[in-house]
């Protein structure tokens, strides 16, 4: 390649690899000391490194960028392999997050599922350490309880420290909530940090409550992403992934970057 001719490393010191061309002394000068003693080759100066006590210093750590998934695992999700498609898409998204390690942001993921009851399927964990456990679907749609769980997590300074970037909240549902979701959503949206969160909503199939999902987004300009088949579920999570990773790499990771979800299909071309 073109670099072969580039001059190699001329000003570095040659620790250990000195090749003195000549040790012949031309003429002793002025000092009158005897000449001609052979030059000693350089010796490694390092003592056994284990023996030496070195000081240590702390360095900065990336700020957390939390992604909180609220996933409907009601019984209806078992139909048409929806829950399987969801499991695959979420696992792929988290695997991509794990590849996205930047100096400034560390993406963390929590998964809250809601069926008969809402539960923390996976606590907030750095994507790089995440071990995905597939979700199983059964029961009703306790979405209100899931909102309360999410609000509790987001407001908890121990789990989401002040230094964390604005969280992203992702809501996925295929049906109508069976509990009192509205007061719970109001509580979530009244929370200082959840209010500022970046929100994504996925409506799966014809049975989903789009008005409710729209209320969750609480932004007239934001769109509910609709999916009728597993490819679209995958595209939705690809959209979330791109939005979050672009943010983690952006100059201002606290600002949201909205990608047009319609662009997702062509995003992989060049």
């Amino acid at each position: 390649m073109g670099w072969a001719s580039y001059r190699e490393d001329i000003i570095s010191r040659y620790v250990g690899v000195v090749n003195l061309k000549s040790t012949t002394i031309q003429k002793p000068i002025a000092s009158g000391t005897p000449a001609g003693k052979p030059v000693l080759p350089p010796v490694p100066l390092r003592k056994d490194p284990v023996m030496v006590k070195l000081k240590d210093f702390p360095i900065s750590t990336p700020k957390p960028l939390p992604v909180i998934l609220l996933v409907d695992v009601s019984g209806s999700m078992t139909a048409d392999g929806k829950i399987d498609a969801l499991n695959t898409a979420v696992a792929e998204m988290i695997a991509s997050f794990a590849q996205d390690v930047t100096d400034q942001a560390q993406i963390q993921v929590a998964v809250i599922t809601f069926g008969s009851e809402a539960k923390l399927h996976k606590p907030l964990t750095p994507a790089t350490d995440f071990e995905w456990q597939p979700m199983t679907a059964e029961g009703r749609t306790a979405m209100g309880a899931a909102f309360d769980l999410a609000a509790g997590l987001i407001e908890d300074q121990h789990q989401l420290p002040a230094r964390a970037y604005r969280p992203a909240i992702v809501l996925v549902s295929d049906g109508v909530p069976t509990d009192a979701w509205k007061p719970a959503l109001d509580r979530l949206l009244a929370s200082e940090r959840a209010k500022k969160a970046e929100r994504f909503a996925l409506s799966i199939g014809a049975g989903a409550d789009r008005a409710m999902l729209k209320a969750f987004l609480a932004n007239p300009a934001a769109r509910v992403f609709e999916a009728d088949e597993s490819r679209q579920i995958k595209n939705f999570f690809r959209w979330v992934e791109l939005s979050v990773t672009l943010r983690s790499r952006s100059a201002m990771p606290n600002q949201s970057i909205m990608i047009d979800p319609a662009d997702i299909e062509n995003y992989d071309d060049f």
Binding site: S22, T23, T24, I25, Q26, I29, A30, S31, T33
Partner: peptide
Amino acid sequence: GRGDHSLATGETIPLRDTRR
């Protein structure tokens, strides 16, 4: 001002007395 000595290319010369 003593000991003027011109050095040629490739010549290696030792300064024995480093204190001078």
